[in-house]
Amino acid sequence: METAVVQTKKGIWSGGRSPFNVSYGKLMMWYFLLSDSFTFGAFLISYGMIRFSSNYWVDHNHVFSSFPGIEGNAPLAFVSLMTFILIFSSVTMVLAVHEGKKMNKKGVQKWLFFTILGGLAFLSCQAIEWTHLLTSTHPVLVDGHLEYWNTTTSHNPWGPRVMYEGGLVGTPGPVAFGGYFFGITGFHGFHVSVGVLLLIITLINTSNNVFQNRGHYEMVEKIGLYWHFVDLVWVFVFLVFYLI
């Protein structure tokens, strides 16, 4: 008979405990987020490369200059509202995680509810913005006559503006703009939608005492990591599409 190996070393990698002092699920959520950041990074960097390779790019202050219900020019206004909504929902999420650590079910429910509201508000804003871009038409000078184009993945009315019959009209702009804008904000919106779905499931489980019986609210923490990541990606989407 062999005798059991007596553990002599007490290093953090010698087994028997988590070297990083985190659970498997939380560590894997971090690694998923790391890989997802490279997916988003690839999209944003390829957008940057196309933009650097073009002599002309669209003027974002011109494209995103409307606010629902307000006549006239309001550059950056609507996207600021979206950014504030997402930052605020990030705070309510971290407060829910905090209440979970205290095993306070009522607090978790309250802050999760506000986070879900924030996520839905953000998605509604994005729906309004997409509808506005896809349906509103703008005069474009094509081969010497005026056409009315909306912003899609195949049409871009935001090219350099020229004088035509006494007024400024656009010319066809780089087609890649629509594809990148709808592709990247759509992929981000898809992440937000998944996040809202996960938050709703977590709220239902909280209400059914699933985590209270389990003895910890780590699931809220893991969903929280995902939700903050979505906010983090928006910070960069906001930067490259609306600010610079």
Partner: peptide, 15 residues
């Protein structure tokens, strides 16, 4: 966002 909201700053240095 990463260090305070996601609490990465509170994790082990190796992680």
């Amino acid at each position: 966002i990463i260090s305070i909201f996601m609490h990465l700053g509170d994790e082990k240095r190796n992680m």
